[in-house]
Deep mutational scan, measured.
Amino acid sequence: VTTYKLVINGKTLKGETTTKAVDAETAEKAFKQYANDNGVDAVWTYDDATKTFTVTEMV
């Protein structure tokens, strides 16, 4: 189990959160659900070296 981080650069929601998951795909599903629940529709990137997902909402 690995800890993954999500950085949110949204128009109305900004911040960071983490989740523990067995792999990046599982973490991504959890983070996308979190973003969807909070109304963030954005572009996703992932950095495997830092285990960090970044979501940037387009203006």
Score class of each variant (00 low, 15 high):
Thr18Ala: 05
Ala21Asn: 02
Val43Gly: 04
Asn9Lys: 09
Gly10Glu: 03
Lys51Cys: 04
Ala30Leu: 14
Tyr4Leu: 01
Ala42Leu: 13
Tyr34Arg: 02
Thr26Cys: 06
Gln33Asn: 07
Thr17Tyr: 15
Asp41Ile: 13
Leu6Ile: 03
Thr19Ala: 07
Glu57His: 06
Gly39Ala: 07
Lys29Tyr: 07
Asp48Ser: 10
Ile8Met: 12
Thr19Val: 13
Ala30Ser: 08
Val7Lys: 06
Val22Phe: 10
Val1Pro: 07
Ala35Val: 15
Thr54Val: 05
Thr12Cys: 15
Gln33Arg: 09
Lys20Pro: 04
Lys14Met: 12
Asn9Arg: 09
Tyr34Cys: 08
Glu16Met: 08
Trp44Thr: 01
Asp48Leu: 04
Val55Gln: 03
Glu25Phe: 08
Asp47Pro: 00
Val59Ala: 11
Glu57Ile: 05
Leu13Phe: 15
Ala42Asn: 07
Thr12Pro: 07
Gln33Pro: 02
Lys14Gly: 08
Val7Arg: 04
Val55Glu: 01
Asp47Leu: 02
Gly15Gln: 13
Thr19Gln: 06
Tyr34Met: 07
Gly10Tyr: 15
Lys5Cys: 08
Gly39Asp: 07
Asn36Asp: 13
Val1Arg: 05
Ala49Glu: 10
Asn36Tyr: 14
Lys51Val: 02
Lys32Ala: 05
Asp48Phe: 06
Tyr4Trp: 04
Lys20Ser: 12
Lys29Cys: 07
Ala49Thr: 12
Thr3Gln: 07
Gly39Arg: 06
Val7Cys: 07
Lys11Asp: 11
Lys51Glu: 02
Val22Gly: 07
Asp37Gly: 08
Glu28Asp: 02
Gly15Cys: 15
Thr54Asn: 04
Thr26Arg: 05
Val55Trp: 06
Tyr4Phe: 10
Leu6Arg: 00
Phe53His: 01
Asp48Val: 06
Lys32Glu: 04
Ala24Glu: 05
Lys11Arg: 12
Phe31Met: 02
Asn38Trp: 15
Thr56His: 08
Ala35Tyr: 15
Lys5Asn: 05
Ala49Lys: 11
Gln33Gly: 05
Thr3Tyr: 05
Thr17Val: 10
Thr12Arg: 03
Lys29Arg: 10
Ala24Cys: 13
Met58Arg: 09
Glu57Arg: 04
Gly15Arg: 13
Thr52Asp: 00
Val40Gln: 06
Thr18Arg: 05
Val1Cys: 13
Leu6Met: 06
Ala35Asp: 02
Leu6Glu: 01
Ala24Lys: 14
Asp41Phe: 13
Lys29His: 07
Ala30Tyr: 14
Thr50Arg: 04
Lys20Gln: 12
Val40Lys: 06
Thr3Met: 10
Ala27Val: 02
Thr18Leu: 07
Val59Phe: 12
Thr12Tyr: 15
Thr54Gln: 04
Ala21Lys: 01
Asp37Met: 15
Ile8Trp: 14
Tyr46Ala: 00
Thr17Gln: 09
Val55Pro: 01
Ala27His: 00
Lys29Phe: 07
Asn36Val: 14
Val40Cys: 08
Phe31Ala: 01
Glu16Asn: 06
Thr18Val: 07
Asp37Cys: 14
Tyr4Lys: 01
Val40Ala: 06
Ala49Arg: 09
Ile8Ser: 04
Asn38Pro: 07
Asn9Met: 12
Val59Cys: 12
Lys11Ser: 14
Gly10Ser: 14
Asp41Asn: 13
Asp41Ala: 08
Ala30Asp: 06
Lys29Trp: 07
Val22Gln: 09
Ala42Ile: 08
Thr17Pro: 03
Asn38Thr: 12
Met58Leu: 12
Ala27Arg: 01
Lys32Tyr: 04
Thr56Cys: 08
Tyr34Pro: 01
Thr54Asp: 01
Thr50Pro: 00
Gly10Asp: 05
Asp47Met: 02
Leu13Ile: 12
Tyr34Leu: 07
Met58Glu: 12
Lys32Cys: 05
Lys29Asn: 06
Ala27Gln: 00
Lys14Asn: 14
Thr54Arg: 04
Ala21Gln: 05
Asn9Val: 13
Thr45Cys: 08
Val59Glu: 14
Lys51Tyr: 06
Thr26Gly: 06
Val1Lys: 08
Asp48Met: 06
Thr54Lys: 03
Thr18Ile: 07
Val7Leu: 06
Asp23Ile: 02
Thr56Asn: 06
Thr45Glu: 11
Gly39Lys: 07
Asp37Lys: 13
Val59Pro: 11
Val22Ser: 10
Thr45Asn: 07
Thr19Arg: 04
Lys32Ser: 03
Gly15Pro: 06
Lys14Glu: 07
Thr45His: 10
Asp48Thr: 06
Phe31Asn: 00
Asn38Lys: 13
Thr12Lys: 06
Lys5Ala: 03
Asn36Trp: 15
Thr52Gly: 00
Thr17Met: 14
Lys51Ser: 03
Asn38Leu: 15
Glu57Met: 05
Asp48His: 08
Asp23Gln: 02
Thr3Asn: 05
Asp41Val: 12
Ala24Gln: 12
Glu25Asp: 09
Gly15Lys: 14
Ala24Asp: 03
Gln33Phe: 05
Lys51Phe: 08
Phe31Cys: 03
Glu25Leu: 10
Asn9Leu: 13
Ala27Ile: 02
Lys11Asn: 14
Tyr4Thr: 01
Gly10Cys: 15
Phe31Tyr: 01
Val55Cys: 14
Asn36Gln: 14
Asn9Gln: 06
Thr52Val: 05
Glu25Trp: 09
Ala21Cys: 07
Ile8Leu: 10
Lys20Gly: 05
Val43Ser: 07
Thr50Ala: 05
Val1Gln: 10
Asn9Phe: 09
Gly39Tyr: 13
Ala49Pro: 05
Asp37Pro: 07
Val43Asn: 08
Thr26Gln: 10
Met58Pro: 12
Thr54Phe: 11
Thr26Tyr: 04
Val55Met: 13
Lys14His: 13
Asp41Pro: 09
Gly10Arg: 07
Met58Gln: 12
Thr2Lys: 09
Phe53Cys: 01
Lys5Leu: 07
Gln33Leu: 09
Thr19Gly: 03
Tyr4Gln: 01
Ala35Trp: 14
Leu6Pro: 01
Asn9Trp: 11
Thr3Ser: 05
Lys5Gly: 02
Asp47Cys: 08
Val59Lys: 08
Thr45Tyr: 07
Asp41Gln: 10
Gln33Ile: 10
Ala35Gln: 04
Trp44Pro: 01
Asn36Gly: 14
Lys51Arg: 08
Leu6Asp: 02
Glu28Thr: 03
Thr56Val: 08
Lys14Tyr: 08
Val55Thr: 04
Thr19Cys: 14
Gly39Leu: 15
Asn38Val: 15
Gln33Thr: 07
Phe31Gln: 00
Lys51Asp: 01
Phe53Pro: 00
